[in-house]
């Protein structure tokens, strides 16, 4: 019987965040940050976007993307400071994960408001 640790679950969150942000964020940024504003691709209308966001499944996917990407960032940033710059302080840990929780809450609030 293998002893239960929390680390595998935390790593799965971290890993899922890495995969999702690497797969989806670049295409979203390319579309909404560059291609639509520069007119390379005709953007969907505001009403159409709102209708897509009105679907709870869309909002759930976006919330998952935001939460997992933030968890990934928090863990990576904390360890970059810890392993790379040898900065270890409980405050750094609290700020990193706290920022991820705050960002997740903000994402949830905005997604709730928009539709």
């Amino acid at each position: 019987m293998v002893r239960q640790h929390s680390e595998p679950y935390l790593w799965l969150l971290f890993s899922a965040g890495g995969v999702l942000s690497a797969m989806l964020m670049p295409s979203l940024l390319l579309l909404f940050g560059i291609a639509f504003p520069l007119g390379w691709v005709r953007p969907p209308t505001h009403e159409r976007m709102l209708a897509v966001l009105a679907n709870p499944l869309t909002r759930l996917v976006f919330l998952g993307l935001c939460v997992l990407s933030l968890v990934h960032w928090a863990h990576r940033f904390r360890h970059t400071l810890h392993d790379g710059l040898r900065l270890a302080h409980p405050m750094i840990t609290a700020l990193c994960y706290g920022a991820a929780v705050a960002g997740s809450a903000l994402a949830a609030y905005l997604l709730w408001q928009v539709a």
Binding site: M1, V2, Q4, W11, L12, S15
Partner: peptide, 16 residues
């Protein structure tokens, strides 16, 4: 190996 171990842990949790 982290993926292997994480899957094993999840399996052990659901199927002790």
């Amino acid at each position: 190996y982290k993926l292997t171990a994480a899957v094993e842990t999840v399996k052990a949790f659901f199927m002790p």
